[in-house]
C-alpha cells in the first residue's frame, strides 16, 4: 500500500503546487508507515519522474495518454488505475486542476472527495481539517471511504524536497479511455502575458478602495515596475471597474504568495485577506492605523499612499 500523489503539470512542466501535495502526502504516509508513490498523466510528463523521486516518491506510475490536459480524461485515468494500484489514499494540490481532476475521479468511482485539507489524521477512518470560507474557517470532518481522496489547500504547506538525487522505479500503464473522455480536452490556448503574473511575482503592489480611481493606480504601477513586481487589487476595485477582474486578489480572485505584498489603501476585508495571507511578508500603507490590513500586516506605514509610494520609488 502507498499514498499516491497525482502530479499536476502543464505540457510536461511541473506545477509548483504539486510539490506541496508531496509534502502533504508524506505526512499521511508517515502516519500509515507506507511509502509515497506518484502518478504522472500524459505522454509529455515522462520527464518528471526524477522530481517526483526527489520529493519522496519511491515509485512513479506513468499513464502516457496522448493530447493536452482534459479534466474528464485525467479523472478517468485516476479512476481506471485506482483499482490496479490500490493505494491507501490519493492526494493532489487544491488548485483549479487538482480539485477538478479529483472530483471527476471521485464521481466516476462513486467515492467521497474532500477538497482543500490542511491536516489529516489517518487511521481506519480519516479525520481531516479542511478550509471553509476560502480559509476564514476550518472544518473538522470525518471521512468514511474505502479509498480516501483528498486535496491539500494551496499554500497550506511549504514545498520541501525529501531526498535530493533519489531515483524512483518508473512503471508505465496503458489506459484505454472511453471516447467521451476526450470531449473536454484543451483545444487551444491564448497567451496574454509572457512575463510576471500575480501568481508568480516576488512582489505584488495591491490597491484598494483608497486608491480612488483607475488613474490612481499609476503610482502603484510605477512602484511595481521599479521593484520588478505586478499590480493587484481588491474586490471593491474591480466592482468599481477601475481594474480588470484578472487583477483581483482574494477568495474569488487570485490567491497570491509573493515574498512581499504591499497593500495600499486596502481595508482588509476577509474576502481579500484570505487571498493575500500566504504572502511571506505584508506591508500595509493606509491612512487608518486601525484598518484590519494594518493590524494584520507585518509592517505598516501610516499615511497617504499618493505621498508614500512616490517617495519609496525615488529611494
Amino acid at each position: 500500500m502507498s499514498v499516491l500523489v497525482v502530479v499536476e503539470h502543464d505540457r510536461g512542466a511541473m506545477a509548483d503546487a504539486s510539490l506541496e501535495a508531496f509534502v502533504f502526502a508524506r505526512s499521511i504516509a508517515d502516519q500509515l508507515g507506507e511509502p509515497v508513490e506518484a502518478l504522472l498523466i500524459g505522454a509529455d510528463a515522462a520527464g518528471l519522474a526524477d522530481v517526483c523521486a526527489a520529493h519522496g516518491a519511491v515509485a512513479v506510475h506513468h499513464a502516457p495518454i496522448a493530447g493536452d490536459y482534459g479534466p474528464e480524461a485525467y479523472g478517468m485515468v485516476i479512476a481506471s488505475l485506482a483499482p490496479v494500484l490500490s493505494p491507501s489514499g490519493i492526494v493532489a494540490c487544491g488548485t483549479d486542476r487538482g480539485n477538478e481532476v479529483l472530483a471527476h475521479a471521485a464521481a466516476e468511482l462513486d467515492l467521497p472527495f474532500v477538497a482543500n485539507c490542511v491536516a489529516v489524521t489517518a487511521a481506519d477512518e480519516w479525520e481531516l481539517t479542511r478550509v471553509q470560507w476560502g480559509g476564514s474557517l476550518n472544518e473538522e470532518a470525518r471521512l468514511t471511504s474505502t479509498l480516501p481522496i483528498v486535496s491539500v489547500a494551496h499554500h497550506a504547506v511549504d514545498a520541501e524536497e525529501a531526498s535530493a538525487g533519489a531515483t524512483a522505479n518508473v512503471m508505465e500503464h496503458i489506459v484505454e479511455l472511453p471516447e467521451w473522455a476526450s470531449r473536454s480536452l484543451i483545444q487551444d490556448r491564448v497567451v496574454l502575458s509572457e512575463g510576471l503574473t500575480l501568481a508568480t511575482a516576488p512582489i505584488v503592489v495591491g490597491g484598494g478602495r483608497g486608491v480612488g480611481s483607475a488613474e490612481g493606480f499609476d503610482v502603484l504601477e510605477a512602484l511595481a515596475a521599479k521593484l520588478g513586481g505586478v499590480v493587484g487589487c481588491s474586490r471593491a476595485v474591480t466592482n468599481n471597474g477601475w481594474r480588470p477582474h484578472s487583477d483581483q486578489v482574494g477568495q474569488t480572485g487570485t490567491r497570491i504568495a509573493p515574498q512581499l505584498y504591499i497593500a495600499c489603501g486596502i481595508s482588509g476585508a476577509i474576502q481579500h485577506w484570505v487571498g493575500a495571507k500566504a504572502a511571506k511578508k505584508i506591508l500595509a500603507i493606509n491612512t487608518d492605523p486601525a484598518a484590519n490590513m494594518v493590524v494584520k500586516a507585518d509592517y505598516a506605514v501610516i499615511g497617504d499612499l499618493f505621498e508614500v509610494l512616490p517617495a519609496i520609488e525615488q529611494g
Binding site: 506591508l283 500595509a284 492605523p289 494594518v294 493590524v295 494584520k296 500586516a297 507585518d298 509592517y299 505598516a300 506605514v301 501610516i302 499615511g303 497617504d304 505621498e307 508614500v308 512616490p310 517617495a311 519609496i312 525615488q314 529611494g315
Partner: peptide
C-alpha cells in the same frame, strides 16, 4: 505590526 513611520518620511 512594525510601524515604519508616517507619510513620505517613512520611505
Amino acid at each position: 505590526t512594525v510601524i515604519l513611520g508616517e507619510g513620505a518620511a517613512a520611505a
